Simulated scan of single mutants.
Amino acid sequence: MAKRGKKYLEALKLVDRTKLYDVQEAIELVEKTAVKNFDETIEVAVRLGVDPRHADQQVRGTVTLPHGTGKDVRVLVFAKGDKIKEAEEAGADFAGAEDMVAKVEGGFLDFDVAIATPDMMGSVGKLGRILGPKGLMPNPKAGTVTFDVGKAVKEVKAGKIEFRVDKTKIVHAPIGKKSFGVEKLTDNFKTFMEAIIKAKPASAKGQYIKSVTISSTMGPGIKINPQKIIEKK
């Protein structure tokens, strides 16, 4: 078992591991337990009552957090001609056509989100084995395969995030930084949870939201009462 630092153990004393907290209380507590000397990211993990092995029980989507994530998101755009200029003017960090495909094939992965125009997907498809495992493959459902690259880049830079249930039935997502304060973190949390509930598959049976845990980058997990979240919808 990994040895925990003194600050983590002190933060852990503030958390009742047997309690299911209300949203407001949990977010106030996660601020107190983010004790590292940097602006820790606040993350949410939602365990769902779905079976991701079945195509009709996949949970994925996008949501724009009202206050962003606090992270400087690096965006790469695969596009041709005037669309390269459009992407760059919208704030893309990297943009190009076959040259950019070759660069990624060569090992370049210094970006957080990849966007592609539909006419580039024939070439970008070759990068599936590289981008897929890292969750970076452009996808129409996520709005990252589009000719409107300017709009897509601006949305990502403004705080649009993609979420997807993993094989352990959990959706992970950042909802901001400790420095955001309770009000902004609460807004982002509620917006994210609304998107998760909206993405519920029609084939999902029984309890959909099994558990919700919030934590800072280096802090302990704080469990939120999922029933209270559902009741407010």
Rank of each mutant, 00 (worst) to 15 (best):
A114Q: 10
I115D: 05
I115A: 07
A116P: 07
A116F: 06
T117Q: 05
T117R: 00
P118G: 14
P118L: 08
P118I: 09
P118V: 02
M120K: 06
M121I: 08
G122F: 02
G122P: 04
G122T: 10
G122A: 10
S123R: 14
V124N: 08
V124T: 07
G125L: 09
K126A: 14
K126T: 13
K126L: 09
K126Q: 13
L127I: 10
G128K: 13
L131M: 09
K134T: 05
K134Q: 14
G135Q: 05
L136E: 04
P138L: 05
P138M: 01
N139D: 14
A142E: 13
A142Y: 10
G143K: 07
G143Y: 04
T144C: 08
T144F: 04
T144G: 09
V145N: 03
T146K: 06
F147A: 14
F147T: 15
F147E: 15
V149E: 01
K151W: 03
K151N: 13
A152S: 05
A152R: 09
A152N: 06
V153C: 10
E155Y: 06
V156I: 15
K157W: 09
K157V: 10
K160T: 12
I161T: 01
E162H: 13
F163T: 11
R164D: 04
R164I: 10
V165D: 00
D166Q: 04
D166P: 00
D166L: 12
K169S: 14
K169F: 06
K169Y: 08
I170S: 05
I170C: 06
I170M: 15
H172L: 09
H172N: 14
H172K: 11
A173Y: 00
P174Q: 02
P174H: 05
P174I: 12
I175L: 11
I175F: 08
G176A: 10
K177S: 11
K177H: 11
S179E: 08
S179I: 10
S179K: 09
G181W: 03
V182A: 14
V182C: 03
K184E: 13
K184N: 11
L185S: 11
L185H: 03
T186N: 11
D187F: 00
N188D: 14
N188W: 03
F189N: 07
F189P: 01
K190P: 00
T191P: 00
T191C: 09
T191D: 05
M193S: 07
M193V: 05
M193K: 05
E194M: 03
E194H: 05
A195H: 01
A195Y: 05
I196S: 11
